[in-house]
Design a protein around this nucleic acid. Structure first.
Lengths: 211, 211, 211, 211
DNA sequence: AATGAATGAGGATTCATTCAT
DNA sequence: AATGAATGAATCCTCATTCAT
């Protein structure tokens, strides 16, 4: 049924500006909804209600639902990456510790976006989703960047090992996020354990005795 | 209304038996579909086509979609738990190693069911899903059982620490499953790293220096 | 879904007796349900749940839904008519008064059945309902009987006038039932007014000045 | 997404206007169908076919079936009330007679809408219907208005008596409508009797001898 | 005398999307 | 830069009914 005109029609401003604003509102609403109910659950109607804009307006800003969610993924990922401070430190141990910590922080700060990402990763449908493809690509790129940061100097770890380590560090973080979603609430302790584990693995890998 | 005479009295139990069979077919079809496309993607129409039974027949066996998926979760979980062989071993280290290994095996063998579980865990909708609730409860119970197995003798680990360790072991496994879904394909290596990490954490926790 | 076997399977008794019993239970359940929600709302599933018998058992006792509701109408009408004591009295006035009173009583005592009747009367579907036809026929017959009772002696009223009077008496009662359903709760007062009105009309009609 | 240039600026307000039109068409179709087959019988599919608009369009204009039928009730009631000309007259008798007549006329002219109303009034389901609630409320308001018209000058009747009288007048009309639906076809004569009866009751009530 | 199981048709409602303005 | 209105396909689920046992 017609959405019965919620807010007051705001004084006609710069149309361009309004445009950006609306787009932003839609993106935020979509991020919220998709973070809560996944790709399928993020219906256009729900995004419309949440953003206050009619469904047809969403289609003015985005080609279709897939494009909208891809845009959400892109924007959110950017924000998230920004939050993951670079792993700085003189020794490898320091760098690994810094990496662990920043991952933990980033996970604790953007649970909504990450939940969406994980849901997208789990999807297995035949019609490939652009949003999913993009998430996986960005995740991959982030992983590469972390590897680079870990290695840039004379490290005793091989590239392959560094990649393994970073992959494990990330996967562990995601697993903890999942455990949190499943109700295991001592997330902080889990992250602490994870840090210990990753440090140990770094040690092992560096000393060459790797797996 | 009443027929004039009695019918032929032959071969009893046909419909009864067929009922069980159909129920099973539906359950299997639903498990397959839901493992692939999640709760929302597991439409009744899809399950109907996959199982060969009309949609209305599905409703004879299950109250609604939620009850169907809850039944899937229950049956699959049972199967899965059966696959996780008990963690036997004399020393704590042996038991931890056995635990790691069986978790790894179980994860590699039932990826479909676990994917469904992870998707359910990530859902965050207002209308609570019975299927989700059940999955979380069963996961919790399994965790408890693992803790019990780890502790039953004179262990130097506190109950709390054992729970932490098991939770981390499980979360890590789930994270690796996720990483696999995200395209990191060296799953075996990740599980190897995970085993090393869990063993190390067990050591740390046992020596009392627990965080 | 399968109704999960509610009551204990009662000790196998005379099958014939059980048959009548079941039929009765179904009839009562159907009367209740149909009195509450009308013909369309009286679904076989609802009657099944209310009676405790499976839907297929209902079809063993009744050819189809229409036949079931027709049986309900027949049985209920009989009961109802039994409650309307004959209009006895020496003078016409006394008889009219007796008629009014017994109608009022009967209406107050069988509201469920009467509601069903009124709903059936209001139906206007192309596929004629047997239940509806039967109700209308029985109502007509009851009306005739009342007319007969009013007239059997040397009355000054013409047959046509008596029929008019009885029709009005009945319609008024039905209207009051409706008003009650609509929330006008002083039903007793309305029946009192109605009695006064009918008596007056009897007077008018008898004195020949009838319209 | 944004087209490169502006479109031609001609003839505004077409879709807007069509919207009202469609809504009206749906409302009319629904009134027709519901008047014929009641609430349950008024399926969305039927209304869709009758109105010429697809089912999904009906849901653009109305939240759900209940809201649609409530809108039907509201619109029809308004029309109906408009038809019941005010009860004017110098003496009470004249006013009562005018009331009777206008009620009779209104009943004869809007049988479809009234049948729907009566069916709604008779419903007794657990999930309360908004359409039913609205009908009852409007009927109540109309009753109040009639009472007001009957009383506004120095009348010898108490408010309570006036209310009784009006309630009886209305209930009688409804009963006659029902009798008509049940096949008693001398509706005009019944209304004549009813007028006589109501007039007499007014007399009785005014002379203070009220029951 | 019953009943588990099945089924096609139809129930209300929501979906993503389009189009004229 | 938007948005009211529309729409066909799909959603979940219920319907009356049948049939083998």
């Amino acid at each position: 049924m017609p959405p019965s005109a919620a807010a007051t029609p705001p004084a006609r401003r710069r149309t361009r500006a309004r445009g950006r604003e609306s787009r932003q509102k839609i993106l935020e609403a979509a991020a919220r909804v998709a973070g809560e109910r996944g790709y399928d659950g993020a219906t256009i109607a729900r995004v419309s209600k949440e953003s206050g804009l009619p469904a047809s307006s969403i289609y003015w800003h985005f080609a279709d639902k897939d494009a909208l969610l891809a845009a959400v993924v892109e924007a959110s990922f950017e924000l998230w990456l920004g939050r993951v401070s670079l792993a700085i430190g003189a020794t490898a141990a320091e760098k690994v510790r810094a990496l662990s910590e920043s991952v933990a922080r980033a996970f604790r700060e953007s649970p909504d976006f990450l939940r969406l990402g994980l849901m997208l990763a789990l999807e297995r449908r035949s019609d490939e989703l652009e949003a999913r493809r993009l998430y996986l690509r960005l995740r991959h790129e982030a992983l590469d960047r972390f590897v680079g940061e870990l290695l840039d100097e004379r490290s005793m770890m091989s590239v392959a090992d560094a990649r393994r380590l970073v992959t494990y560090a990330l996967a562990g973080g995601e697993g903890i996020l999942l455990a949190a979603a499943a109700g295991d609430d001592d997330v902080d302790e889990l992250f602490a354990l994870h840090a210990t584990a990753v440090l140990h693995l770094a040690d092992v890998l560096e000393s060459g005795a790797a797996r």
